[in-house]
Amino acid sequence: MYDQPNLESTVSQNDIKISADKVQVYYGENHAIKDVSVEIEDKTVTAFIGPSGCGKSTFLRTLNRMNDTIDICRVEGNINLDGEDIYDPKVDPVQLRAKVGMVFQKPNPFPKSIYDNIAYGPRIHGLASSKAELDEIVEKSLRRGAIWEEVKDRLHAPGTGLSGGQQQRLCIARAIATEPEVLLMDEPCSALDPIATAQVEELIDELRSRYSVVIVTHSMQQAARVSQKTAFFHLGNLVEYDDTSKIFTNPTDERTESYITGRIG
């Protein structure tokens, strides 16, 4: 495990996957996200940190339009995925979410078997044309989710019967199964014990080779351990966005410094 910010990984330069420009989010009267612009790189783990209620989860949910399911929520500004505006009226959020997968705070396996949990996404998106192909996708996803060895003998047992850490890796595997390009993770380890957290963090680092990963976290140590880029949010504003090593060793803004040193939050 990394206890030091992984300095070596910040050297490489990647393409821009998501670019947000002057994004505002309103919940009814409440201005939750104020003027946030950020560019998220491909094949990189980007961490959103900040005190509770700072808007980091809200902003994460705008990236795959999960906020659409909340009636009173309104989004302004531009968010582009590979140069295409995701809030364009021509975009079907269903197609968007297949490209931008999401993992939630609490593990939420469906009340189905482990196999069906993974096969759910590929089935609805029509990714497999035969049973054999589907089996293959399930196995591949479970392997990438680093849980195959633990569940291969009980694929047809209910997913809800797994331990918390296994459930969360199952949910990550489920998100991977739809072949997304970006993975959003909303505090994926907050409901897990330290050992399960370590396993999930290791998995996140491996996922970087294929996906752009955005992770919201409460824990600064976690951000330091897994991410290459870090964005610090405070009261709905994006205060600072830079290489993780820079944020944790030499922040520019004093609010960031106060937060990292534990004076606010």
């Binding site: 995925l81 364009d88 021509k90 197609q95 060895e149 290791e202 998995l203 491996e206």
Partner: peptide, 25 residues
């Protein structure tokens, strides 16, 4: 942790634009 037998290349995916709704959707 991870299985070594996984091939690192991701399955090639048709590069579709978000601005076009596909037939399945």
């Amino acid at each position: 942790m991870t299985d070594a037998s996984v091939t690192p290349t991701a399955a090639p995916k048709p590069n579709t634009s978000l601005h076009q709704t596909d037939a399945r959707t």
